[in-house]
Design a protein around this nucleic acid. Sequence first.
DNA 1: AGTACATTTGCAACATTGTTACATTTGCAA
DNA 2: TTGCAAATGTAACAATGTTGCAAATGTACT
Lengths: 146, 146
Amino acid sequence: MNAIEILKQHNIKKTPARLSMINAMKGCTSPMSENEMKTQMGELYDRITFYRNVQSLSEVGIIHKIVADNTTVKYALNSCEHGHNHTAEHAHFFCKTCRAVICMNQIKIQSYQLPEGFQFSDCDVIIKGLCKKCNVMPELQLEPQL
Amino acid sequence: MNAIEILKQHNIKKTPARLSMINAMKGCTSPMSENEMKTQMGELYDRITFYRNVQSLSEVGIIHKIVADNTTVKYALNSCEHGHNHTAEHAHFFCKTCRAVICMNQIKIQSYQLPEGFQFSDCDVIIKGLCKKCNVMPELQLEPQL
DNA sequence: AGTACATTTGCAACATTGTTACATTTGCAA
DNA sequence: TTGCAAATGTAACAATGTTGCAAATGTACT
């Protein structure tokens, strides 16, 4: 499904900034930082508009925001070509060295039993450590993608 | 165990700022924001020193930093009077309304099987929703503690 | 107690990230 | 084509986090 269809399907206006955001994410296999998005979006990137669209696209469920760390936020399409869904039902891995965020599709998020009176909304699981590249071959470490 | 003993036990220098931080956290049942800490610490609070001590106290394992949200970071003593340990082995609840972070001591963090080559370090589980107060009696909502 | 030295502190300056107000433009439906 | 709500972009601001450096302080050793 292309960007235009995605917006239409969610009943949200088609604007160049939104199309650009969605297309940037479509071209990437793992969650992207604001800076990576900015690079992809080029002229169509405006910081304030970006933040507002992160808000609106999240609200309708088109994208998902992943907070790996208080200084590391990444974004991903909810239905990307890999057929998986980012809406919080799988865990994310965060590499402490290269700061990459990787979807752990095979690690499902369990349902937690909250105390009486609490209302569940959603759950984030962030597993931290070293990714394959940084662990096995530290000399080939990727530059952090900030 | 008092603040002085805690520092000594971890082989880290005893300074007024650190004692003040530890004592601030000792007096609180749930993880505190920087602002709450600041209030408790009074004169002894300095922003830069605070950030540096968050770093050093975390490194040796005296405190634990909980990132509920990219704009909500809280801090807790690893061994508080409740006898529980904050070093990432239990989940935390984050109330979307009052922004409180509550330790879910009864919800243990499972051990996750990472793909070949990955090295595990630690894991954060943040469960979001409405806390008891905000869910049951929205009219009595606590002011957000920022 | 006094000294030596590494650690810690606090200031200044800066970088990054996130938010609000408001006037203008744009998307879309009638 | 027109009307209007929604979205955009500028400016201004607020909050959060970091670095360099000189001065102060904690602690181990005599």
